[in-house]
């Protein structure tokens, strides 16, 4: 079983990430047993089956998909994953903040895809609490990233007040 970072610890991952092959129909794709994270298109096409199958089901959002697309389903989703096809594509940071700050999502937000040590601090500030590091990366070392900056300036998902409302001389 692969490991992910969850709540700043390395833990075993129970979920299977489902992806669609090119041309594969989201309504008819076969799903593995056990806990799964499915593409948004599969969630939308098979929602009634997925909500009654008796295993945890999460959704993953690609870069062109946003928090709005799952806003009505948050209560039934234990995990929402946000894909980073390339670590330099920053759209997922906005998605996570919107999920937490606008839609009040309290479940797991997991970064998937090209997820690397040096972006973890920023991702955590935006509301990610789980990270599936890219294969071959050192999870133990990456745990250090969360302590990079002690008191950042801005308000974000992890801190509702900017530093200027908290500064003490």
């Amino acid at each position: 079983m692969t490991q992910i970072i969850k709540n700043r610890q390395a833990v075993a991952d129970n979920y299977t990430l489902v992806t669609l092959a090119e041309g594969e129909a989201p309504a008819s794709t076969a799903l593995p047993t056990g806990a799964i994270i499915v593409p948004l298109a599969v969630w939308q096409a098979q929602k009634s089956e997925l909500t009654t199958r008796g295993t945890p089901v999460g959704v993953w959002l690609d870069v062109t998909e946003g928090a709005e697309d799952v806003a009505d389903d948050l209560a039934s989703l234990p995990v929402i994953a946000v894909n980073f096809p390339k670590f330099t594509d920053g759209r997922g940071y906005s998605t996570a903040r919107l999920l937490r700050e606008r839609y009040g999502y309290t479940g797991e937000i997991r970064a998937i895809g090209d997820v690397l040590h040096d972006q973890l601090f920023l991702m955590a500030r935006c509301g990610f609490d789980a990270f599936a590091l890219r294969e071959g990366k050192d999870i133990a070392k990456a745990l250090n990233a969360f302590a990079t900056f002690k008191t950042p300036y801005q308000a974000a998902a992890d801190e509702s007040r900017p530093l200027f409302r908290r500064r003490t001389a």
Binding site: F87, Y93, Q119, L122, C126, F149, P152, Y153, Q154, L163
Partner: peptide
């Protein structure tokens, strides 16, 4: 200066 502080390590906008 207030904008400088806001933009410094802004977590959402590091990969525009």
């Amino acid at each position: 200066e207030i904008l400088r502080q806001w933009s410094t390590f802004h977590p959402e906008f590091a990969f525009l």
